[in-house]
Design a protein around this nucleic acid. Sequence first.
DNA 1: TTTTCTATAAACAGCA
DNA 2: GTGCTGTTTATAGAAA
Length: 676
Amino acid sequence: MMQESGTETKSNGSAIQNGSGGSNHLLECGGLREGRSNGETPAVDIGAADLAHAQQQQQQALQVARQLLLQQQQQQQVSGLKSPKRNDKQPALQVPVSVAMMTPQVITPQQMQQILQQQVLSPQQLQVLLQQQQALMLQQQLQEFYKKQQEQLQLQLLQQQHAGKQPKEQQQVATQQLAFQQQLLQMQQLQQQHLLSLQRQGLLTIQPGQPALPLQPLAQGMIPTELQQLWKEVTSAHTAEETTGNNHSSLDLTTTCVSSSAPSKTSLIMNPHASTNGQLSVHTPKRESLSHEEHPHSHPLYGHGVCKWPGCEAVCEDFQSFLKHLNSEHALDDRSTAQCRVQMQVVQQLELQLAKDKERLQAMMTHLHVKSTEPKAAPQPLNLVSSVTLSKSASEASPQSLPHTPTTPTAPLTPVTQGPSVITTTSMHTVGPIRRRYSDKYNVPISSADIAQNQEFYKNAEVRPPFTYASLIRQAILESPEKQLTLNEIYNWFTRMFAYFRRNAATWKNAVRHNLSLHKCFVRVENVKGAVWTVDEVEFQKRRPQKISGNPSLIKNMQSSHAYCTPLNAALQASMAENSIPLYTTASMGNPTLGNLASAIREELNGAMEHTNSNESDSSPGRSPMQAVHPVHVKEEPLDPEEAEGPLSLVTTANHSPDFDHDRDYEDEPVNEDME
DNA sequence: TTTTCTATAAACAGCA
DNA sequence: GTGCTGTTTATAGAAA
């Protein structure tokens, strides 16, 4: 029966050589069902702009730090000229002085609030500032230490005066210490100037005259639990402590703040910025009013009628009440300062974590990018990770996606000649053509670009190409000038292109023949030379949409495999595009970047799905460029009444020759019905 | 578990 | 008769 069918086909084929080319053969090579998981696509869309911005900020911070250092060094030289000779203790003082040189100015809690709220500083800049704060705290502690020493010296001097003796040496030492303290004051003034310069550069948005409230040295290694504990302490203090008053004088605040961070209030006296405290109380409201004018009712600490100050959550009916609440409950005091410190710690920890994650992501991207670019340098078996390699190929037939890989799905068939091969030639040979089926992951759609890229590799390495026979056959035919090949030429193409097929010829040749006969996308044409095989591209592609529409998982696979789409020949691509086959439009053939590839594919697919489903019903003869190429489809059933309609739509013929196509295993698939 | 798809093997027939 | 070509069937494996 079957035999008769085959014979009949041949005879009939001869008779209808110039008949309609509408082969009904379903393609078994639908390519977009590939199982490539698009989900593996790295989310590379993190934004190069973000990275660039962060780098820019970092560079700015570094630049500011350098500038500060230079300025302070210059000031140090100047003050060094003015400074008197130091006593024996001075060498020990040099270290804190140098540290102080590095610290521009103490940032007030309010300044920190603004920094945190407005996020005017990058993580790096914040870190620099924190370090500066710590250094300045050391400086102030040293000042207190020196003041104590000075007091002791004065006491000693008084005692000595009372004793009737006043050694000149001790007087000199005292004088020197006083001069040194003056030097420290000068340096603090310079640091204030540096802070102003920071503001001019836009790196800080703090007021120039804000009180210099030293921060307690931050515990760099503070762990989250410690932070939580500290935060609990602060918040608990918040509940127990009633606001002492809305109008904290800057002086009082400074005092309390210093007292909380420094053992002695004397630092306040020594602090030259104390005189500027009055400016703060004046400038801060202006600042707030300005910011609120620019962004009315927009405040980082206010949202949904609730004060978002950490640990507060007070309900504020309107923005004005919130402002009042903010000024009253969260004024500049030691509690707010402590809360701000905690918040800074939290932010710092988060920033560190973010930096680590960013670094990790960068490493991942770098790694993947390198991998994706490697094949360009040296031919490599088609692999993978479509999302990474971004192979710009039009989809081919094979449903399976990833080539088989014992190691990692992203590196299926690593060339034997390249690095750590996962599949050695030997192993491939041992497997051989034996009735052992390779994983379907081998059955990756082939593409011209893929073949071209990996051509040398497959020519030399006896590695089984991760493509289906159907894909390879199709590729062989499409590569031919006339888009048609004899069986022997197909054989030759196999052996020429793949070293693997130079062995076990009987097996794979049988498979080739089997595929040629089985898949309807391969059309046998008899010409003068004899029988040649062509590809019915429409049939080849037709099946894909059905699979996709019917199976969500296949849709997903299609998305991922879309990047594999085999680039058809230019003419073919154009023809496909002209015929509104979205998946193969030139737009989709582009080489999208990693960043927009996924979205581009998604968009195209979304449209493609609709288009393909809708177009299927209207598939017309003119739609297939290959139809023009194949004037004769020997296997067509000329006696089929449906064909009498003319050059018939492929769909029609495909579905109306069951009596003839029963030899095609997949003829009766519901797919065809859908197409119809 | 079923379905689908592919690979593999084999049988068979026609033809040069 | 042999080998090539082409068709068909059966089966196994893998994935959805």
